[in-house]
Nucleic acid binder design. Structure first.
Ligand SMILES: [Mn+2]
Ligand SMILES: [Mn+2]
Ligand SMILES: [Zn+2]
Ligand SMILES: [Zn+2]
Lengths: 152, 152
DNA sequence: TCCAAAAACGCAACTAATTTGCGTTTTAAT
DNA sequence: ATTAAAACGCAAATTAGTTGCGTTTTTGGA
């Protein structure tokens, strides 16, 4: 279950509680950043965040917050066509300080490059081959997103 | 002429034929680069190539060769943990000037970051969802490669 | 073989993305 | 209130990739 679903279910979720439970300080920016992720279906580029907060926040602070959020299991990297850093919220139950488990797929739009998690398509489990040890499989779907599909 | 020279020459001609058939000029560097890809099971970073050729070649030339090779359907981008450009040979029959078709998976080692194509694991075909149009699916496997698995 | 056009190349400068160092401010815990 | 840890801002550095342009090599035809 993702944070935004939790947020939907209980009327008011304290972002502060989540930050605290992950061992992160409750600064104004980090609370707002967590809220931004919770309210965004799409994954976020560093630049999306910088644009959102305007000149209120330094880019270095953004990079460091993302790094901390990722380390604490709050967000995870999402594949990006142009090799830039891009993140989405983790599943509340699945990820923590030292274990990220992502059992869902990612969609990338060929046209607008929008990316988001698709929770209900589970990547196939691949059994180990030869001498390898496969720990995780992930599935990337590419094509036209809803918006681009309807206008092309 | 010794056999091994004949052999070398035939091998070289083979690469030249491929370059010509793709509409690429047969320069010493591009022949050697194609050979490097053909002899490498692992996918190659720009930096792997620059290290291999040492100061014999300019990095701009490497970037442009990779771009041309990709456009002509000779190589394809491979996902990289650190978001760098990384390539592997395409299947000669499948890819060409304006169509890349990659019906295989990619393995990424969690420890050494080595990446390579796994031809015999075919990504599942995902039917379209909702308003989306899914054109392609790709599967990424992560874990320990043969080498890292045996020493950890 | 000779020639012109196209492709490839090298160099320098440039842009974009991300990281590091360090001193200051804010937050957390007592 | 005190103090340590975490977060922050600014400047500078680093890394990765790109662009412009003049020169060289390759190609394909005369
Ligand atoms: Mn995801
Ligand atoms: Mn591949
Ligand atoms: Zn789109
Ligand atoms: Zn490995």
């Amino acid at each position: 279950m993702r944070f935004w679903m939790l947020n939907n279910m209980r009327e008011k979720i304290q972002y502060e509680v989540i930050l605290t439970s992950k061992g992160l300080s409750k600064t104004k920016f980090r609370i707002d950043l967590l809220r931004l992720f919770c309210n965004s279906k799409k994954s976020l580029l560093v630049d999306d965040i910088i644009v959102f907060f305007g000149n209120m926040i330094n880019k270095v602070t953004v990079y460091r917050a993302l790094e901390d959020f990722e380390n604490k299991g709050l967000i995870h990297k999402v594949p990006d066509k142009k090799n830039r850093k891009r993140f989405s919220l983790c599943d509340f139950d699945e990820c923590s300080q030292n274990s990220h488990i992502h059992n869902h797929s990612h969609f990338i739009c060929d046209i607008c490059n929008t990316t988001f998690c698709i929770d209900d398509i589970i990547p196939p489990t691949i059994s180990n081959i030869k001498g390898y040890h496969i720990k995780q499989s992930s599935l990337i779907l590419e094509g036209y997103c809803e918006e681009c599909n309807s206008t092309n």
